[in-house]
Amino acid sequence: MPKYGMVIDLNKCSSCQACVTACKIENNVQIVSEYDAQHGRAMFWMKMLTMEFEGDYPNIRPKTLPRNCMQCDEPSCIKVCPVRATYKNEVGIVAQIYPQCIGCRYCMANCPYTVKVFNWDRNEQPKEVEKCYDPDVSVRPKGVVEKCTFCIHRLQIASEKAKAEHRDMEPGDYVPACVETCPVDAISFGDLDDKKSEVSKESRDYRSFALLDELGTVPKVRYLNAIE
């Protein structure tokens, strides 16, 4: 079984936020009302974070990074889920089962990366967005927690296609929407166990680091430091 992982090269990333939009439209993530957005309920699975500013003005650089679900190998969210609505599946993706979730938000409280978002309100979308729903992904009702799933529906479709064509999955068959969209190919995606894959090479690069590595969550999303 492959173990899917992602490496985001901060040296290449130009903070254009295409991954954020791609994620939003690929996964039918709810657009919340003006009131909700201003009260901290905007929903983004992929988010552009400004971590800190390095240096003093004018030799100052913000450290920005796109942050999606880290798809931890030792996820702290699944430990606390009382109903098995979130769990790690055989390919290492931490999946979220929306029809199972009771909305207790314990996983949100326990995620050190704050990647989980909650449907605080009824899903009432603008007309133009409703018509652009991705039919591969459900539209979550209110009251459930959701998060990045590495576009697991794309994995289903890709594996199905590969099986129908009587072949094995090939590296390029399944990539999440953010990876596909990234204009500068800053995000590489693939099988971490395959030592020859680009993502596994990059994850062992001297520049590579994981967010909050000290917590022992073993994220499968790693970053490559920017070269100064």
Partner: peptide, 30 residues
Amino acid sequence: VQAFGNPLSPMNKGGICPMGLTSVENLYHP
């Protein structure tokens, strides 16, 4: 329903920016 970058285009090689990604929304705009 969705728009993504064309990998064969020499201009963007499969990448696309937020504006291009949301171009479908304009079509259905009320």
